[in-house]
């Protein structure tokens, strides 16, 4: 049996996993700002980016509250943690985001496909939180699910448009699918802190059932027998992670406490 304090530590790690994953994907998508293929889509992808960062803020605020209540039990030496200190002052190994979120943004095909793969997963995950015991997580999930539904609609239409588009767009979608697929296995391997998610096999099935018709319409075939990467949930990251954290954290680390 776990003690209450152990349970709380697991919950904190789980909330940080949700926060980190959304923050890093939000940061990656924000790299499109002023680089979008067309003005309207530049705004669309940065809107999604802001949705994700908004979700991460809700999770960070909750994590900070839990950590402060639990002061002393965390690895961090303070009891006045905030959403900002969690986002800006933790190190690579402390971040628990999924590996797929930290991969470079590459081209539009990679970006829209990654959004689809992740959003379909987060929709199933948030539905578990919505119906779970934790009132705070349930409230965050309820708000986020409306945003996620739009992200799925937007990204699935792009995947179909490019997959079933010109020779070049189809080719680029295929390259993106082959590059990103090895990072989808990690979605469904429960980390020790994911005690409230007990049915990852069902989540995986849901995910496949939602994804397959989209890929069929996009004339894309799912890669078979692929070696699946993992480690992000445990803080073991790709070589890209340090660079994105440097981008994200540079200002707060160079000018501690700087404000707008």
């Amino acid at each position: 049996m776990l003690t209450d304090s152990q349970k709380k530590n697991l919950l904190i790690d789980f909330v940080l996993f949700l926060a980190d994953t959304n923050l890093i994907l939000g940061q990656r998508n924000a790299e499109w700002c002023a680089h979008g293929p067309i003005l309207e889509q530049d705004i669309a992808i940065t809107n999604i980016s802001l949705d994700l960062i908004g979700q991460s803020r809700n999770f960070y605020q909750y994590a900070a509250k839990l950590l402060n209540e639990n002061a002393g039990a965390s690895q961090l030496p303070h009891n006045d943690l905030t959403e900002d200190s969690l986002a800006y002052l933790r190190t690579e190994r402390e971040f628990k985001n999924l590996l797929i979120t930290e991969l470079p943004k590459q081209d539009w095909a990679h970006t829209v496909l990654r959004q689809l793969l992740y959003s379909l997963y987060s929709q199933s995950l948030y539905n578990r939180l919505l119906n779970g015991h934790d009132v705070q997580l349930s409230a965050i999930a309820e708000k986020a699910l409306k945003e996620v539904a739009y992200h799925i609609k937007w990204s699935s239409e792009w995947v179909i448009r490019l997959g079933d588009g010109t020779d070049e767009s189809h080719e680029r979608m295929l390259i993106a699918l082959q590059a990103l697929w090895p990072y989808t296995g990690e979605f469904f391997i429960a980390a020790t802190y994911e005690t409230s998610i007990t049915d990852y096999n069902v989540i995986q099935q849901e995910w496949s059932e939602k994804l397959t018709p989209i890929l069929i319409q996009a004339t894309l075939e799912v890669p078979q027998n692929v070696f699946m990467q993992k480690g992000g949930k445990q803080g073991i990251h790709t070589e890209h992670m340090g660079f994105i954290l440097a981008d994200l954290q540079y200002l707060q680390r160079t000018y501690p406490g700087a404000e707008w």
Binding site: I38, L39, E40, Q41, I43, A44, N47, K153, W154, E157, R161
Partner: peptide, 16 residues
């Protein structure tokens, strides 16, 4: 705004 089809135009309008 610019869009490839009506569906995309509605989504772009929503975002813009």
């Amino acid at each position: 705004l610019k869009a490839a089809d009506a569906q995309m135009a509605i989504e772009n309008a929503r975002d813009v």
